[in-house]
C-alpha cells in the first residue's frame, strides 16, 4: 500500500525545493548527533599535553597510549564485567517474573485480576528516584547494601510494571482456540506454555528484555547509592559509576578521561546496533500499547 501511495503523495506537492531542504535537515541532524561523540573518540588519540596546548586540533601523531592504558586496566574490565552481570541478572529476572505475572493476568480468570493489573500499572507512578534513598536504607538493613543482588532486585522490581504492561496484550492476543486445540491434542497447561506461548510471545519478550538491559546498563542513581555508598570496591562499580569516578580522579589527565569515556560508550553502541530494530520498535510499541 505504501509503495503505491508514496509517489502520489509526492506528486501532489508542488515544492520542488523541498527535497534539498530535507537533505540539509537530515544531514544537520546527523552531524549534531554524531560530532560530539566523534570529537571524544578522536581526541582520545591525543596526549594530554597536546590537548592542553590546543584543545581543538587533530591528533598528530595518532597516540594510542590512552586507549592502550584503559584497555589494559583491570578497573575498566571490572566495570564491564560488573555492568554485564547486573544487566544480565536484571534482564533475566524481568523476563521470567514479568512473563509469569503477565501470563497469569492475561489468561487466567480469577477474582482480583483487574485489581492486580491496576496494581502493577500503578507501579509506574512510583519512580526509582523517589524510592532511592529509603531503598538504600532498606537494603542496608537486610544486608544487601554493596552487593550485586542489592542492585539487581530493585532494578527488576522497578522494571516489572512496564514489562507487564507490554506483555499482557501480547499474551491476550493468543486465541483461546489454540489453547483448546492444544489441550485436545493432549498438551498440558505447562506444555502449552512452553510450546506455544513462549514462541508466540518471543518478540514481546525480546523487546522487554532489551529495554530492561539498556535501563540497567545505563543506570546511575541506584548504583551510586548501592555500590558507591555501600562500600563496594571501585573495580566492581558499574560503568557509569566507574567512568564518573575515573574522570573525577584523573581530571588533569584529559587524554585518559577522553579514552575512558569513549570506550565506555562502545558496549551500549554495539548492543544498540545489534538490536536497533527491537529497541526502536519496542519504544514505539511500549508507547502505543
Amino acid at each position: 500500500m505504501t509503495t503505491a501511495s508514496v509517489p502520489a503523495a509526492q506528486a501532489g506537492t508542488h515544492f520542488n525545493w523541498r527535497q534539498p531542504v530535507i537533505y540539509v535537515v537530515a544531514l544537520t541532524a546527523i552531524l549534531i548527533s554524531i560530532i560530539p561523540v566523534l570529537y571524544i573518540w578522536i581526541s582520545g588519540f591525543r596526549t594530554s599535553a597536546d590537548l592542553n596546548a590546543s584543545p581543538g586540533g587533530w591528533p598528530n601523531p595518532w597516540f594510542l597510549g590512552n586507549y592502550a592504558n584503559v584497555l589494559s586496566s583491570p578497573r575498566f574490565w571490572g566495570s564491564v564485567f560488573s555492568s554485564s552481570l547486573v544487566a544480565v541478572g536484571t534482564t533475566a529476572g524481568v523476563v521470567v517474573l514479568g512473563l509469569c505475572a503477565a501470563y497469569v493476568i492475561a489468561r487466567y480468570k480469577f477474582r482480583g485480576r483487574q485489581w492486580l493489573y491496576t496494581f502493577f500499572s500503578a507501579g509506574l507512578m512510583f519512580p526509582l528516584t523517589v524510592a532511592a534513598l529509603p531503598l538504600s536504607i532498606l537494603l542496608r538493613d537486610i544486608g544487601l547494601h554493596g552487593t550485586f543482588l542489592g542492585l539487581i532486585i530493585p532494578q527488576v522490581a522497578f522494571a516489572l510494571p512496564v514489562t507487564i504492561i507490554i506483555l499482557v496484550p501480547f499474551l491476550r492476543a493468543i486465541p483461546l482456540e489454540i489453547e483448546e486445540a492444544a489441550s485436545i491434542d493432549g498438551a498440558s497447561r505447562i506444555g502449552f506454555f512452553w510450546r506455544i506461548v513462549l514462541p508466540l510471545s518471543l518478540p514481546g519478550l525480546i523487546t522487554v528484555g532489551v529495554l530492561a538491559f539498556l535501563g540497567s546498563w545505563n543506570g546511575y542513581l541506584l548504583p551510586l547509592l548501592v555500590m558507591a555508598a555501600g562500600g563496594m570496591p571501585q573495580e566492581l562499580w558499574t560503568l557509569p559509576l566507574g567512568v564518573q569516578q575515573f574522570s573525577t580522579q584523573y581530571s588533569q589527565d584529559t587524554g585518559a578521561v577522553l579514552a575512558y569515556t569513549s570506550l565506555s560508550m562502545v558496549p551500549a553502541l554495539v548492543f544498540f546496533l545489534a538490536a536497533e530494530r527491537r529497541i526502536v520498535g519496542g519504544l514505539t510499541g511500549a508507547v502505543k500499547g
Partner: peptide, 28 residues
C-alpha cells in the same frame, strides 16, 4: 534513524561527561 538515536542510547552519565569535556573552558 540510527544516527539521531545514538545520543539516546548512551548512558546519561556518559553523555553528560562527554559534554562536560566539550564545554570546559579549554574544551572542544
Amino acid at each position: 534513524r540510527a544516527a539521531i538515536f545514538v545520543p539516546y542510547v548512551l548512558a546519561e552519565v556518559i553523555a553528560g561527561l562527554s559534554w562536560k569535556l566539550l564545554l570546559s573552558p579549554r574544551g572542544g
